[in-house]
């Protein structure tokens, strides 16, 4: 059906094909390139948490007994908002030494609470006990309680919250 012309000039048919291919490529690129961006864009967003959370005035914490401070942080993933609650024990020792411990048990992440009676942190799940500075006294936890990096600025305690 396609008759090859002996003319040295481009045939009308070939010209149409070239124009079609050219316009088609442009249209493909206009749609194709945004689609690539659309697919990979969530991967390009940084989702790391790196902030200093204030726990209030240092003077508000008693010396010798751990005191719990709780706060929440909300994380947004696309259309979903997840609110996580954090609990930390602030321990002021008499020598001026300070320790900030996570209240999450290192065994299976239950929340431990401080007991004045036992002078230990007790985990309700498997009866684990941690000493006042976080060492494991009894039970299954594989590690001492996690410590937060902290600093004291203008009389306020701040802890370093990092993730990801």
């Amino acid at each position: 059906m396609t008759k090859k012309t002996s003319s040295p000039n481009l045939s009308r048919r070939d010209f149409s094909k070239i124009v079609m291919a050219f316009l088609g490529s442009i249209m493909g690129a206009i749609v194709g390139i945004p689609i690539i961006g659309y697919i990979i864009s969530p991967a390009l967003k940084t989702q790391t948490v790196d902030e200093w959370v204030s726990l209030g005035a240092l003077d508000g914490y008693p010396i010798g007994t751990p005191k719990l401070f709780s706060f929440t942080r909300t994380k947004v993933n696309g259309w979903e908002r997840t609110t996580n609650s954090f609990g930390v024990f602030v321990l002021r020792k008499s020598g001026g030494e300070l320790k900030v411990l996570s209240n999450v048990c290192t065994h299976l992440s239950c929340r431990v609470k401080w007991s004045d009676e036992d002078s230990a942190y007790l985990c309700p799940c498997h009866d684990a006990q941690f000493a006042i500075d976080g060492e494991v006294i009894y039970g299954p936890p594989p590690h001492p309680m996690y410590e937060y990096e902290f600093k004291v600025e203008e009389g306020n305690i701040l802890i370093h919250l990092t993730e990801g």
Partner: peptide, 26 residues
């Protein structure tokens, strides 16, 4: 990105429009 659920459908479209590159175009 779209989720056909009453509590997320609207939010997921907001995300397409504002959170994803070229989502507004698609």
């Amino acid at each position: 990105y779209y989720v056909p659920s009453p509590d997320k459908a609207y939010d997921s479209i907001q995300y397409i429009m504002n959170g994803v590159a070229f989502g507004w175009l698609i």
